[in-house]
Each structure stands twice: as structure tokens, then as C-alpha cells.
Simulated scan of single mutants.
Amino acid sequence: MEQNALLQVKDLHVSFATYNGEVKAVRGVSFDVRKGETVAVVGESGCGKSVTSQTIMRLIPQPPGILKQGEIRFNGKDLTKLSEKEMEKIRGKEIAMIFQDPMTSLNPTMTIGRQIMEGLIKHQKMSKDKAKARALEMLRLVGIPSPESRINQYPHQFSGGMRQRAMIAIALACAPQLLIADEPTTALDVTIQAQILDLMNELKEKLNTSIILITHDLGVVAETADRVVVMYAGKVIESGTVEEIFRQPRHPYTWGLMGSMPRLDQKRTQELSPIKGTPPDLLSPPQGCPFAARCQHAMKICTQEMPETTAVGEGGSQQVACWLEHPMAPAVQPPAEVVGGGSK
């Protein structure tokens, strides 16, 4: 863990009470985010990415959500210990979030301009005139044409790409130190995706904002991230710089993710390799490695005990939780098609 990190998530456990029992959605997640960097959190649907991000914002309703243990330190403050009133002062002002679906996240009864102005009036104590001028500036910044007329329009009058830009404008209006982007390019066509990613990179450079990027799209990760956290079944199973994860992935699950991603240097006839099987049921998680049932390299120990996280590679910046890293484990090489799979 980086001592001077802007955000430190330590041993986070989050569960949900259901009629069938306790769903252990996040099970001991730890990572940090430094100032001015983009950390991508990747993994299949249901691995705990969005639950982790919403817990950082303290947006998980309790009940049914249960924050069982862990720390979320932001600028030295443990967010898990703050009251709802204290969190309201941080949300939007110091930490902002771009949600997965802008149509359900934007208020359909309020103009886009009012939704941008709302945070400025509340957190920055701006007058309406100043807040409106800032809202126009934000709409220009995110590349929305004719902001003078668009500021008075409603979300349904915007296209999908423009709604996503409006969400980014709302999130960045108060110049937060940390931006959490939950699948910010989902359901957008590739041209708009590229524009949104370029915009986020540009704003990060201008405002020195740190970004947590929640995604399952490894192409997006390669384009924007500095470091990568790979999650599976509520746990972090591998982490490292984007170059380390793409050039020399160490966990069989990461190999599977890389192998299922199309690459420009592949022959047209070459098929993608899906990860066979399904993730474990988090009502009763396995006691060993959660990926063991789907891993072709699994050993007996893999089903019995969860491996410790091991620092690997040069400088130890890459970390992996896998029994294959044990000195007594057989030497297993990643598939040729996933090594050197790309870089920024």
C-alpha cells in the first residue's frame, strides 16, 4: 500500500442480506489510487467491481447491504466512519461518480443546466448566475455543441453520447480530486467511446484528477489506465501497471480475459478462447481459490486454501494471488497468444 495515496481501500468486505442467505459480494479487496493516475478495475459481471465503487461513495443501501469490515481512507479520512451528513459534503465536491446508465442517473424532470448547477450552488456556495456561467463552461469543456441552448434542455433531448458527456460535466463541475467512472462507455458506439475516453484523459491532465475506471473492456483499459486491478468473485486476484498486466499476466484468470479479447495481429480464422464454466455462487464461496473450478492448471491445494498475494516481477509492483507462484508449484507458462498482448 502506498502511504501517500489519495485513496486507500484496505481489506474491504461487503455483503447483502437476501432471502436465500448472505451474498458475500466483496471479500477482502485492497488497492490504492495515487494523485493524477487512472486505476482500472476489471473483471466479469458480478465480480464486485460496481459494489466496491459504490461502497467508496457510501451509496450501498444498508440494509440490505452490510459493510462488514475494512477501511476506505480518502485524504487520510476513513470514509466508513463518517456520518451521512459528512459524506454529503464529500460526494460531488471531492469524489464524484459517472454512473453506468446516464438515462437512469440523470433527473428527467430537471434541465441539464440545473443538474450541473445544483452541485455548484450546494458545495461551492455560488450564486445562480455564477453557477450558470460555470455550467456553460463545463458543457463547452465536454464538447457539447451550442451549450447556450443545450443548457435549457432535458435529458431525453440528448443522444446517448451527449448524455454521457453531460454526466461527466456534472461529475467534474466541482473539480473533484477523485472521479469514479462505472462503465462510462457501455452502450455507446465505438466513435463516441473513443471521444469519451479522449475527453476523460484530457480532463485528467487539465485538472490532475485521479480516476477509478470500472470496466470489463480491456481495450478501454489499454487506452486509458496507468494501473490495473483484476477482480474475480469479490477478490483482487492480480494487480500491476498496465504494461505488466498486458505484457506478462501471471494469473490464469487474467490469461483467460486476455485470450477472450480480439487483437489486431490475430488471423481472421483464429477463434477467441472463452473462459469455460461460470463464476462461483457467492452465497457459499469456495474456501480455496475462487477460480479453481474453471482453471486447467488447478492443483489440490487450490481447492483447499486461498493463496496469499505475492509480489512478482521487477520492483514487486505486480501482485498476484495464485498457487502457481509457490516455489513448489510446477512451472506453467501463459499461452503464447496472451503474452505481450499490448500496451498503451
Score class of each variant (00 low, 15 high):
residue 70 G to L: 11
residue 19 Y to W: 07
residue 100 Q to F: 07
residue 49 K to F: 09
residue 119 G to C: 11
residue 119 G to Y: 03
residue 75 N to H: 12
residue 113 G to R: 02
residue 115 Q to G: 12
residue 69 Q to E: 15
residue 69 Q to H: 12
residue 71 E to A: 09
residue 74 F to C: 01
residue 30 S to W: 10
residue 11 D to R: 11
residue 95 I to F: 01
residue 72 I to F: 05
residue 24 K to S: 01
residue 30 S to T: 14
residue 43 G to C: 06
residue 19 Y to T: 14
residue 130 K to C: 03
residue 34 R to P: 00
residue 20 N to W: 07
residue 82 L to T: 12
residue 10 K to H: 13
residue 16 F to G: 02
residue 98 I to A: 05
residue 119 G to D: 03
residue 28 G to H: 07
residue 42 V to A: 08
residue 87 M to P: 00
residue 119 G to R: 08
residue 47 C to A: 13
residue 49 K to Y: 11
residue 43 G to V: 04
residue 36 G to L: 10
residue 65 G to E: 09
residue 114 R to F: 10
residue 90 I to H: 02
residue 118 E to W: 06
residue 105 S to Y: 06
residue 94 E to R: 06
residue 100 Q to H: 09
residue 129 D to W: 09
residue 84 E to S: 13
residue 85 K to D: 14
residue 58 R to Q: 14
residue 84 E to G: 03
residue 68 K to F: 00
residue 69 Q to L: 05
residue 83 S to A: 10
residue 74 F to N: 03
residue 69 Q to K: 15
residue 24 K to L: 11
residue 114 R to D: 15
residue 109 T to V: 15
residue 19 Y to C: 06
residue 14 V to T: 15
residue 83 S to G: 12
residue 10 K to C: 08
residue 77 K to G: 01
residue 76 G to C: 06
residue 122 K to A: 15
residue 20 N to H: 12
residue 129 D to T: 14
residue 43 G to Q: 04
residue 26 V to Y: 05
residue 34 R to M: 09
residue 67 L to N: 07
residue 114 R to M: 14
residue 87 M to D: 00
residue 49 K to R: 06
residue 41 V to M: 15
residue 39 V to C: 07
residue 39 V to Y: 01
residue 56 I to H: 01
residue 26 V to S: 04
